[in-house]
Each structure stands twice: as structure tokens, then as C-alpha cells.
């Protein structure tokens, strides 16, 4: 991985809890993500997946080790990243269009063609015609699509997604997974995607990073050798099954092992 877009080198992170106790969230995580690569992070709850994401976003600094984007160390949030959370968290008082434009307004980067850009993005996610609607008039899936547009509006190189489909129902979730692949095929970005769902992790990713329970560290990185464009039909293929089984063993095997210990 010479063309490392994101590089984590021996990153550890410890939090101090309210009662003064120390919680080690991440221990010695090293990971390089190439330009336009799609990497998913899976692991049990509380293994520090979101912490990795927030370190790349510049929202949290590592306790030790370094995180960098294109060779420059991340010390604060950077314009190269866009972020999507589990909840759409749209502004209830603003229209769909204004929600998409919100990051540009906050960054003071509004330009005459910004609105047109936002409209194009909304069209990309099949939400043309909803520009003037209020977020509450949209379904959960549609709201999350607006949130994706909001993350893309400043044309970041890196898209960080923290369980973006976790709050959606199973059917909408599959639909959104394919939707995301379609968006990614049209607008190539480096994507770091946190999820709890093993099939989702495999179907989306070039590489799946499996994390061990707290303190989170990388258990294994699995290359997903499936042709693109992907679809849920591939779930039956041996390559898919093999990758999914490996991930499952890594996550549940460890759990059983730790219980036995």
C-alpha cells in the first residue's frame, strides 16, 4: 500500500470515564487505506470502531501513535473528510436542500453554484423534487440519503460512515447498501464504513477490518474477492460465504475463547 490515503500507525486511545477510571478503547492499531478503497470495520460492540472513525475525522486525537491523511498528521477536523452518523440528525427547521448545504454554510464555503451542486447530489440519491420538503416529511431511509448528500456536498476525498444504516429496517437497509455502492461507483471516494452487519461488511468492502473486543485491536484484515458491481445475489457465492465465515469465527470464536479463559 504505497498510495496510502489514510494511515494509522500504532494508534492507541484511552478514555477517562466520569468516575476517574481509565478505559482503553484502542490498542496499537495500524492500518493503511488506499485511495478510493472501500474498507469496512466490523467487531463486537464497544471495540472502538467508532473511535477509529472519529480519529480519522479529527474529532478525537489518539493517545499515542499517529493518524494521517496523505502523509499529514490529523490534528483537527479536515475538509477532506465527510461524515455520516447512525441517525440522520438533519436540522428539523431547515429544508432538505438547506440541510445538504449546511456544511458549506458552516465552513463559509458557499458559492453561487453550491445550490446546483446540492441538487445534483439529491438527484444522485433519487431525491430530486424533495429539495423544499422538511426532514420530518421524509422516511428514515430518505433522511439518511439526505445525510449522505450532506457528507458529500463539500466534495471530500474521504467518506466516513458510522453505522449509517443501523437504524433502518432490514429491507431499507439492503436497498441503501446497494444505493451506496451505486453512489460510490459514480463518485469514487475512499470510504471507511463501520457496521455491525457481517453481510453488509462483506458486500460493500474491498477489505474488511475485523476488530477484537476491548481494547480494540485489529484481529485480521480480510480481502473480499468478489467482482463488482456487487449485488445481494452474490451472498450465495463461495467467496462471500468464506469471507463471512472467517469474520464470524474471528468475532464469536474470540468471544467463546475469552469466556473459556
Amino acid at each position: 500500500m504505497a498510495a496510502g490515503m489514510i494511515a494509522l500507525e500504532h494508534v492507541s486511545r484511552t478514555f477517562v470515564s466520569a468516575d476517574g477510571g481509565r478505559i482503553e478503547a484502542l490498542r496499537d492499531v495500524s492500518l493503511t487505506i488506499g485511495r478510493n478503497e472501500f474498507v469496512t470495520l466490523v467487531g463486537p460492540s464497544g471495540c472502538g470502531k467508532s473511535t477509529i472513525l472519529r480519529i480519522v475525522a479529527g474529532l478525537i486525537l489518539p493517545s499515542s501513535g499517529t493518524a494521517s491523511i496523505e502523509g499529514s498528521v490529523i490534528r483537527e477536523p479536515r475538509p477532506e473528510t465527510g461524515i455520516v452518523f447512525q441517525a440522520p440528525t438533519l436540522l428539523p427547521w431547515a429544508t432538505v436542500l438547506d440541510n445538504v448545504l449546511f456544511p458549506l454554510r458552516m465552513m463559509n464555503r458557499m458559492s453561487p453554484d453550491s445550490a446546483e451542486r446540492a441538487r445534483t447530489l439529491l438527484k444522485l440519491v433519487d431525491l430530486a423534487g424533495f429539495e423544499g420538503n422538511a426532514p420530518r416529511e421524509l422516511s428514515g431511509g430518505m433522511q439518511q440519503r439526505v445525510a449522505i448528500c450532506r457528507a458529500l456536498v463539500h466534495d471530500p476525498d474521504i467518506l466516513l460512515m458510522d453505522e449509517p444504516f443501523g437504524a433502518l429496517d432490514a429491507l431499507t437497509r439492503e436497498e441503501m447498501t446497494l444505493e451506496l455502492l451505486r453512489i460510490w461507483s459514480e463518485r469514487r471516494k475512499t470510504v471507511l464504513f463501520v457496521t455491525h452487519s457481517i453481510p453488509e461488511a462483506v458486500l460493500l468492502a474491498d477489505r474488511v477490518v475485523v476488530l477484537s473486543p476491548r481494547p480494540g485491536s485489529i484481529a485480521r484484515v480480510i480481502e473480499v474477492d468478489l467482482p463488482r458491481p456487487r449485488s445481494f445475489d452474490q451472498e450465495g457465492s463461495p467467496a462471500f460465504q468464506g469471507a463471512a465465515r472467517q469474520i464470524r469465527e474471528l468475532i464469536f470464536g474470540q468471544r467463546h475463547a475469552s469466556r473459556a479463559a
Binding site: 474529532l59 461524515i83 452518523f85 456544511p103 465552513m107
Partner: peptide
């Protein structure tokens, strides 16, 4: 919601904005 505050921080918004 803390996500909105994080979004603001990700956009490097000042405390005032």
C-alpha cells in the same frame, strides 16, 4: 444530539456559529 455538535466541529465551526 451529539452528532450535530460533531458535525459542527467537523466543519470547524466556531463556538459562536
Amino acid at each position: 444530539p451529539s452528532e450535530l455538535i460533531e458535525l459542527g466541529r467537523a466543519c470547524r465551526a466556531s463556538k459562536w456559529s
